[in-house]
Design a protein around this nucleic acid. Structure first.
Lengths: 120, 120
DNA sequence: CAGTATCCTTCCCGATACTG
DNA sequence: CAGTATCGGGAAGGATACTG
């Protein structure tokens, strides 16, 4: 029995979605893009509600995908800095586009939801 | 009970992500955008692997958000057609941008993953 | 500080069966 | 055809505690 992977293949944007739009990844990338190089604890505080476990998981994934770089400084106490890479920064225009769409159309979505919930 | 609030507020693209990049939504929107108005069973066949339950769930969500319209024809057998709305179609340029990014940079991601896995 | 380790819960999703 | 109902499994995510 082979699994069906057709939906992914049929949609050219699907592969990107897994990389960029997994949970917590956009806030992390945004924070690094906006506020520059940061330490682990800074990110942890900025992304209120995230646990260190999950933050580590996501940062590792982003590092593996080449969107974020990790720099370890062997000091006491240890210091680790995360920074967005050129590849990660290349998502900037895309995020801007997304943000523009939100500004332009999020109101319509809200309105549609309300109409739907009221009962059409 | 309440999910992410602060990280969403901090990141202007986060709200859009929940609407557009939930599971199965991009393949569905893509199919409707590419192949036009379709019946339930057509979508079901095109999105190989999806179950009717999940397809219904996603279509309802998309309908509620105003991205997809549902038209019921009281015939025997019943006929229901789904179509992308103007609001949904307004995502077209965004998807194109996403697709372009994939073409341009997906290779770099693959390369980064390989380097990472090898251990460098 | 920068994470790990462990446990636990929840939620999504797939499979299957059934209905108007 | 176009769904709904029900059940169950498994992975993501949260809470908490601990280490180099």
């Amino acid at each position: 029995m082979q699994k069906s992977v057709d939906p992914e293949l049929a949609c050219p944007v699907a592969p990107v979605v897994d990389i960029v739009f997994s949970r917590w990844t956009t806030p992390i990338l945004w924070a690094l893009h906006e506020f520059g190089r940061q330490r682990f604890v800074e990110l942890e505080r900025r992304l209120a509600g995230i646990t260190p476990k999950v933050l580590t998981q996501r940062l590792r994934q982003l590092e593996r995908d080449g969107l974020v770089s990790r720099t370890y400084h062997a000091e006491v106490p240890p210091r680790v800095e995360y920074e967005i890479t050129d590849l990660g920064a290349s998502l900037g225009p895309l995020f801007a586009h997304l943000s523009n769409w939100a500004d332009a159309h999020l109101g319509e979505v809200e309105q549609a939801r309300h109409s739907y919930d009221v009962g059409r």
